[in-house]
Design a protein around this nucleic acid. Structure first.
Length: 628
DNA sequence: CTAGGGTTAG
């Protein structure tokens, strides 16, 4: 009696599924294999095949496919899958719910995820749901919501674990949240979570990013079995905070400990080489990159371009840039700022235009590079045009960093009143660098009155930045206002500010030699001073330039760069060929006059790097367009 | 066959 019906069933089954894959379990098992890093796209393709074949996804299918969709951050396909979930009536299955919540969290909709969670408050696996939500909010830069959930979780008596901490702590990587992060660290220790290396790495990242280096170091030293990520967290954190020498030390320690660095390590090390101007180390790293087969890594290529440009080797930076098959915004920014720093503003703006033609959308950072390139090269009109185009053509609101570029640009061109007016018209509160740029321009154009105004503002904002005191003092000296110089000195003493000893360093034959003004620790110091005395004599005879020497030393101290130059000349084999890069944070007028003169007398080249750019000295001229 | 995590550039 049942026979006809049964045969009908068999027939339908065969018809609708010629490959006999109607059973979801087979698909599910394949999906499980594919929902792993690197294969998520294939998992999605497989899911589509599954639907086309007529198989119905079930409660085991959805967690896998939602995970893949979440990992690729595909909100559209995620929402589609959500529809399939409802269609197949799986929406109240616990694992499916959790997977849905996770998917929405990873697709930047933590609010949707929270609604799902809130509408169906079930008792299962609350920890997992909370973990997903907390990390979702934190990664969507809604740290306070993440924290709120964490507190709710605790007040409901839901247990938290390592994953909770890993979700929440990345929100504590700004100094304002450090204390909170530290209390989290304490609770984690009490719960015995410190044995989880990922948790330790996470807190380590928090400490270095908050510039709490003693705490970071302590934690780092306490980790007995350091993983690659532990080293990387420490190295990148220090690199991002400008602790270049610490990074190079860590890198050596890492190699000594036998741990193999990877691309992430090299990125941090190269960025520190760029900051320090340590080209020799940078070259070694490039060799290693080749040896490890990482030379096609784009992160590393950009880091190399930046490193060479900031070590003064523009040729090599350009070569790497040219070899790149695909350049992104970061590559263009690195090469543009490289040319800008070396005073080649024309090339920088050409490259910028070329980048726009190539269809790359500029961002605020690349505008900082191109604007400062214009300002260093005296391309006033061009710079103003770019500044105006930011908002009109690209919808980018200028920030105070762009305003300070334009103030610098107008200021160098002598348009001080315009620069002042621009500051007054800023939509946001002007910060230290903005007023500082005006102050610097006042020095170039000898405007004491405006300088005093700018100084009052900037010192109010950055009371401990000694550079600004030195700047105004130099302006007073130039104007012959010795009373003013005294006033500044008294002000500094009252505020407990000591003049920082200017320092310079030279990388010579792979070692960095540091010279602090007045320091006599260098092994060759006797010869250096003899050489320096000779040089100063020659320069005086040459043009009498040093007679104009102003009494800057009162505050700025003895010139450290002269020691560096004397050292280099003492050790140089071939003056004409050697290009020497000297790093000096603050270059003053006397420094310019002296180096120009030496380069003329001895017919040699010098490259000097200050905080923002390079000065190329040759035959008594300097590449920078400043009016010292 | 079932969910949640730490380190990359200008």
């Amino acid at each position: 009696m049942n026979l006809p019906l049964q045969s009908l069933r068999t027939k339908t089954k065969l018809l609708s599924s010629p490959l006999q894959q109607i059973q979801p379990i087979k698909w599910n098992i394949q999906l499980r294999e594919l929902s792993k890093p690197g294969q998520y796209q294939q998992a999605i393709t497989l899911y589509r095949q599954m639907l086309r074949s007529g198989a119905t996804p079930n409660a085991f299918t959805f967690p896998f496919i939602l995970k893949s969709s979440a990992a690729l951050s595909l909100p559209v396909s995620g929402a589609q899958i959500h529809c399939h979930v409802i269609k197949s009536g799986c929406q109240s299955e616990p694992f499916v719910q959790t997977a849905l919540i996770t998917m929405y969290c990873k697709c930047w909709s933590p609010d949707t995820a929270y609604k799902l969670f809130d509408e169906s408050p079930k008792s299962w696996e609350l920890t997992v749901c909370y973990n997903a939500l907390i990390s979702g909010y934190v990664q969507d830069s809604q740290f306070s919501n993440g924290l709120l959930l964490f507190r709710e979780m605790r007040s409901r008596g839901v247990a938290f674990n390592a994953v909770t901490v890993l979700g929440l702590v990345p929100g504590c990587t700004v100094p304002t949240h450090l204390e909170l992060g530290m209390s989290l660290h304490c609770s984690s220790l009490k719960c015995g979570l410190n044995s989880d290396l990922a948790v330790a790495n996470c807190f380590l990242t928090m400490y270095v990013r908050c510039a709490a280096f003693e705490l970071a170091r302590k934690l780092f030293d306490e980790i007995p079995m350091k993983e690659l990520i532990t080293w990387n967290a420490m190295i990148s954190g220090c690199a991002q905070n400008g602790l270049g020498t610490e990074v190079l030390d860590l890198y050596r320690d890492m190699e000594l400990s036998g741990m193999q660095p990877d691309a992430v390590t090299f990125v941090g090390v190269l960025s520190s080489c760029a900051n320090l101007g340590a080209q020799k180390v940078g070259i070694e790293v490039e060799e290693k990159i080749k040896r490890y087969g990482l030379k096609f890594n784009r992160f590393l290529k950009n880091a190399l371009i930046n490193m060479y440009a900031r070590c003064g080797n523009l040729t090599r930076a350009q070569a790497i840039f040219d070899e790149m098959p695909e350049r992104n915004l970061v590559s263009w920014t690195a090469i543009i700022s490289g040319y800008g720093m070396h005073g080649h503003g024309e090339i920088a703006v050409e490259l910028f235009d070329e980048m726009i033609k190539a269809g790359i959308q500029p961002d605020r950072t690349v505008f900082v590079s191109v604007l400062s390139a214009c300002s260093h090269a005296g391309l006033t009109k061009k710079g103003i045009d770019y500044f105006d185009s930011m908002e009109t053509n690209y919808g980018l609101k200028p920030g105070s960093e762009h305003y300070s570029c334009i103030v610098d640009l107008l200021g160098r061109a002598g348009r001080l009143q315009e620069a002042h007016k621009l500051i007054e018209s800023m939509p946001m509160e002007p910060d230290g660098p903005v007023w500082g740029a005006l102050l610097g321009a006042c020095k170039i154009h000898k405007n004491v009155e405006l300088a005093e105004l700018a100084f009052t503002k900037v010192v109010n904002l950055e009371p401990t930045n000694i550079g600004y005191y030195v700047l105004l003092s130099n302006i007073y000296t130039m104007a012959g206002d010795l009373e003013g110089v005294m006033r500044i000195r008294v002000m500094m003493r009252e505020r407990g500010l000591k003049k920082d000893p200017g320092y310079s360093y030279v990388e010579y034959k792979g070692t960095t030699h540091l010279f602090v003004a007045g320091d006599r620790k260098h092994p060759q110091i006797k010869n250096i001073y003899t050489m320096l005395a000779e040089l100063e004599e020659l320069v005086k005879e040459d043009s009498g330039l040093l007679k104009e020497e102003r009494n800057d030393q009162a505050i700025a101290g003895v010139h450290s760069e002269r020691l560096a130059i004397a050292f280099a000349l003492l050790n140089s084999d071939d003056l004409g060929k050697d290009i020497l890069v000297i790093k000096n944070l603050r270059i003053c007028g006397d420094c310019h006059v002296f180096i120009k003169s030496v380069s003329k007398i001895l017919d040699c080249k010098f490259v000097v790097r200050d905080a923002t750019r390079f000065h190329h000295f040759k035959c008594g001229e300097c590449s920078c367009k400043d009016y010292w």
